Simulated assay, not measured.
Amino acid sequence: MAIAGVVLLAKSVKLTTKFTNVLEIPSEFIEKNVKLRGRLHQITDQGFEIEHIPITIPIISSLQKRWHADGLLLVRLAGVELAPGGTIWLKSEIKPSQMMWFQLLERKDSVLHCLVVIKKGRFSSVCLNEEILRQGLGKTVNIEGLAHESRIYWKLHKRLLQAELKAVKKHKGIWKEESFIEKLREHITNNKYLQKLKQFATWLRTRL
């Protein structure tokens, strides 16, 4: 019982520790895809700069040695390749100091790749990974850090693909631009065909 109590206390200390550096986060947190919460400081081309806000437990508050430590975590949207307008859209939609939850999927080069969720209103929330795809401001890519044969990988990848498909069907964002380019190419091709047809008609008249 004493050993179990020590293990439980150790886990509680980790959950209530304020992480100020990506490398401080325990490996088991990444492996178990733990959800953390934080406050947004700013959005850059590199990702979200988030201040980790740990869970508070009054009983062990005296053990929270790093509560007042400074430092921000760099978080990116897992499974998403942002289009040029994606960062601009995020800055316009998300308020400074916005509280958000980020589910850990991978840690790479001091960057966390996560599912990022924010509240919209009192009773609803939005997954930014999916929303950016629904707006046509990104493309789905492999979710790094998850085994491709794992259940969680296909569950998340399916959600992202479904969000992207909605933008494709509605010709939103980058899909609208690609649709325009396709039409332009078709128009140019048709013009070339008409020019050749006119040339043939002119040649035919000279032979009559």
Rank of each mutant, 00 (worst) to 15 (best):
L104Q: 03
T87P: 00
E81N: 11
D109H: 13
D109I: 11
L105M: 04
L90E: 02
T56D: 12
Q103W: 02
K95M: 08
L74H: 06
I53W: 09
E49R: 12
G86F: 02
R134G: 06
S110W: 04
L115E: 12
I94Q: 01
V141T: 13
P96C: 05
R76I: 07
H157I: 10
A78R: 05
F48V: 08
C127N: 12
H148E: 15
E93T: 00
H52V: 03
E130T: 01
H68L: 13
S110K: 14
N142S: 11
S62P: 01
T87D: 00
H52G: 07
G71R: 11
G79T: 05
I132W: 03
Y153G: 09
L137N: 06
L128Q: 08
A147Y: 07
K119A: 01
N129P: 09
E51D: 13
P96S: 14
I143L: 14
P58L: 14
I94G: 06
M99I: 11
A78K: 12
I50R: 01
I88M: 07
I50C: 01
E149N: 14
E49L: 15
F48Y: 09
Q64F: 07
L82C: 05
M99W: 11
L156P: 00
I143F: 01
L105S: 02
L82P: 01
L90Q: 04
V117G: 00
L72Y: 14
L72N: 10
A147I: 06
K119M: 00
H157G: 02
I60F: 09
G71P: 10
G86I: 05
I55L: 14
Q103F: 01
L77A: 11
L90D: 05
F123Q: 10
K119S: 07
V80C: 02
V116W: 05
E81C: 04
E144A: 06
L112T: 01
I60H: 07
L105F: 13
P58G: 15
R134T: 00
K139I: 04
H68Y: 10
I152M: 08
V116N: 03
G79C: 02
C114L: 02
I88E: 14
T87A: 04
E144Q: 06
L82T: 03
D70T: 12
L90P: 05
K119Q: 10
L115I: 13
G71V: 14
E51P: 00
L105Q: 07
R151N: 08
S150W: 12
W67Y: 15
A147W: 02
W89I: 07
Q64K: 12
L156M: 06
W89Q: 09
I118F: 10
F123C: 00
G86D: 03
M100S: 04
Q135M: 12
L77M: 11
I57L: 15
R66L: 11
